[in-house]
């Protein structure tokens, strides 16, 4: 049992180390440090690859290729704190190289993920409603242009903040903001065609007399699963 305990303790120690420390350790030949980096970021890269290619096996290959590139570039990697933007940038490039050719019909993203995600708890009616919402929203996301879709995926699927997205897509934060703003507006237009989803705050607001607000709007951003 002793070696197992020692392994667990080493794993916890690796989790506490920052990406920068792990990169330096891996550069010195510490295989465990590289493995810790791999386990820390593999799921995020997988999701990103899955969102762009819509093919789980291609997403797996993107994970492997991304870390193979990272290993080759260890000597010149200088992450400020997190290696995530660099890894995601490589993964985005690899994903766009692996995108299905025109004419090849792959199953939609929600189908690809259904096999991998266990259903949430809830009544069948809630699950059906959620599935419909997901289908409509993801279909609307698919209609966006590649730049806007990438920003949406990086923010809402991978939980990157605006500064990290700016590093991944290599543009100023203001550009990321405007792309996200434009994407939200376009999505809003698409979603307004589905009143059954209950996403009509404007209609409710317009019904109020005088169209004037007295209380401040309380904006509670959705908690994303950030790491």
């Amino acid at each position: 049992m002793k070696p197992k305990k020692a392994q667990t303790r080493a794993g916890e120690a690796d989790e506490a180390r920052s990406d920068r420390e792990l990169v330096y350790a891996a550069r010195d030949g510490d295989t465990r440090a590289f493995d810790a980096l791999f386990y820390r970021h593999r799921d995020g890269i997988f999701r990103l690859g899955l969102a762009i290619t819509k093919d789980p096996s291609a997403a797996d290959e993107i994970v492997v290729d991304t870390f193979a590139r990272a290993h080759r570039a260890l000597a010149r990697l200088e992450p400020d704190d997190s290696l995530r933007p660099w890894l995601y940038r490589v993964a985005v490039n690899l994903s766009y190289n692996r995108r299905p050719r025109k004419g090849v019909v792959l199953s939609p993203l929600e189908d690809a993920v259904d096999e991998k995600v266990t259903s949430d708890e809830g009544s069948p009616a809630n699950l059906a409603e959620l599935a419909e919402l997901r289908r409509v929203v993801l279909a609307a996301v698919d209609l966006l242009g590649p730049k806007h879709r990438l920003v949406v995926v990086l923010h809402y699927l991978n939980g990157l903040n605006l500064a990290e997205i700016a590093q991944v897509v290599d543009c100023p934060i203001g550009t990321v903001k405007s792309r996200l703003h434009y994407a939200l507006r376009r999505l809003r237009t698409h979603l307004s065609a589905h009143p059954e989803l209950g996403l009509e705050p404007r209609a409710a607001f317009m019904a109020s007399p005088g169209r004037q607000r007295t209380a401040p709007l309380i904006v509670e951003p959705v908690r994303l699963d950030r790491r």
Partner: peptide, 15 residues
């Protein structure tokens, strides 16, 4: 909010 809810199950996907 709709995007957050739509992407929530996808965030559980893992390799």
């Amino acid at each position: 909010v709709a995007l957050g809810r739509a992407f929530a199950p996808l965030r559980a996907a893992h390799t």
